[in-house]
Design a protein around this nucleic acid. Sequence first.
DNA 1: GCGACAG
DNA 2: ATCTTGTCGC
Length: 222
Amino acid sequence: MHDWNVSVQEALDLQERLQHKVILSNGFDPARLKTVAGIDASYADDQALAVVCVLSFPELTLLEQAKISLPNPFPYVPGLFSFREGPAVLKALETLTLTPDLLIFDGHGYAHLRRFGLASHIGVYLDCPAIGCAKTRLVGEYAPPGPDLGDFSPLTDTTSSGQETIGAVVRTRPGSKPLFVSVGHKIDLPTAIQIILKCLRGHRLPEPIRLADQISKEKYIL
DNA sequence: GCGACAG
DNA sequence: ATCTTGTCGC
């Protein structure tokens, strides 16, 4: 679709050109969701290590996992995260036997400076439904969500045309910091929130992400 | 000019 | 993300 070995300026141009391809409505039937994939990565010695965990839904049983590394990742630049993590993630997804119905990323989707975070970029690139799940804020303002599991408040951002809801700040676990959920691609925000809540197993992070996060930190490639 | 800034 | 000891708060 496009080259990933780009300069900072080229990366910015790509985001500007592709951001309009993001679809914020459901491109699938939530009732027929059978498999979800949690995606995360770690970095060490100039190597990016991407991990993909495919789980059944709503049972959340691990069905398959992919773990692959790639050298010389793009540097970390706030707003251009997909160019750092994207290449390794795509390579890991290629080795998958199963084709997950939905991708869940450790990072933002629509809640991005140019509305094109990691989840949106990969979602559009593969034309697959995707959700962004970040542990901290990149852009936008919000009021702390209620204290109970499932409570959430809107994440808004000011644009030339006024205020816009770009995501939701969700209480995924009482007493813990909230999670920043945003649309990646082919899904609407309410549905994304519902699915994330159904992926919780008593932790702050949804099970697919928690698993991928854990495995990516176990520096060992099979 | 001075902060803020996914992982 | 990664590097890292003790320590403040619930």
